[in-house]
Structure formats: C-alpha cells, structure tokens
C-alpha cells in the first residue's frame, strides 16, 4: 500500500494557518514534533492524513479528524510518523525542503518509487499522467482501477499507486519489488 501527498507552501492562494485551522483537522491523539510552529504543524498533519487516507484506498470520504498521526522520530531530513485510520500503518516519512512538504505513507518505504514533476497546465491530473509516461517510457503507465483509484502498470504488472498535485508540483508514487 502506498499513499502520497505533496503541499507547496509557496502557493499564493494558501492563507495562514493557526490553532483554529489546526483544530479543523486534528484528532485528539495527534502528535507533532515539539516546537513546531502552527503553519508547519497544520501542513505536516494535513499532508500525513491525506497520505494515510490514500494508502487505505477506501471508498469512504476523507475526514482528517478521524485519522491519527503520531510523530516518532527525525531521520536526517525525514520525519517518521505512524498513523491510524481504518488500519494501523507503520512508516510514514515526511520530507520538508524548500517549502515543499511531501509525505509517503506505506508499510514498506524501501519498495516505494516516486517521481516528481513540474506542472503548467490547468488540467494537472492529466498532465501528471502524461508527464509520468513520457519520463518513464512506454513500459510505464498510470491507470485507474475499477474504483477509480490510481495504479501503475509496468511490463504487464499492475500495482497500487498514489498521485498528488498542488500548485505547480505533481508526484506519482508506486510500489516496485
């Protein structure tokens, strides 16, 4: 299972986040690293919850307050979280670099492959899929399963995948053994 989310904090449409906005998305058991400012706190939680939601591949609606996010430790430039929603999923890594927060929620981070892209058109979802195929070659394709959730087809094998785009950035992540 894999869930991914990306947030570009340079997006001019994003308004400042404070404790009030954090309360909109918080579960009582959520834990962020000590000393995290409100802005970072909000987006770390948001991105982690989105990634956990996508990893579950559920047909339920996204409800961030129902998803728990627990900070575990910092590993180099990654923050390691554990999360719980429908299942307990270990191994959430959050990278925060150059005002970009990206999250991969997975039980097996070593098997996750991902590619990020710059997006310029108004139909980012399609542009992301097209960019992925161009970059990876004809052997790779982002498709959708019967529930409409993303998959990656590679050399005849289809595996669960996750896509995310925000502002001018897009990311595709998939599992590859």
């Amino acid at each position: 299972m894999i869930g991914i989310d990306i947030v570009d904090l340079t997006d001019p449409l994003l308004k400042p986040r404070s404790q009030r906005e954090i309360s909109f998305i918080s579960h009582p058991n959520d834990r962020c690293p000590k000393g995290t400012d409100d802005e970072t706190h909000y987006w770390l939680l948001w991105a982690a919850k989105e990634a956990i939601f996508k990893a579950e591949r559920s047909d339920q609606a996204f409800s961030p307050k129902e998803i728990e996010v627990h900070y575990v430790e910092a590993i180099d430039d990654r923050l390691h979280y554990r999360g719980k929603w429908l299942n307990e999923i270990n191994g959430y890594s959050i990278l925060k670099k150059d005002n970009i927060i990206s999250v991969a929620a997975t039980a097996n981070i070593a098997a996750v492959k991902w590619k990020t892209f710059m997006l310029n058109t108004s139909n980012q979802s399609q542009e992301l899929r097209d960019s992925f195929q161009r970059e990876m070659g004809p052997g790779y394709q982002v498709l959708s399963d019967v529930a409409g959730l993303p998959t990656v087809r590679h050399n005849g094998t289809t595996t669960p995948a996750s896509v995310s785009h925000h502002h001018h950035l897009g990311i595709v992540a998939w599992m590859e053994s």
Partner: peptide, 13 residues
Amino acid sequence: LKINSAHVVDIVL
C-alpha cells in the same frame, strides 16, 4: 470543480 482539497479551508476563510 477539481478544487484541490488543500484549498477547502481557504475557501471557508
């Protein structure tokens, strides 16, 4: 409308 879910709170504000 394909509004990014990250912007829902901005719309509310």
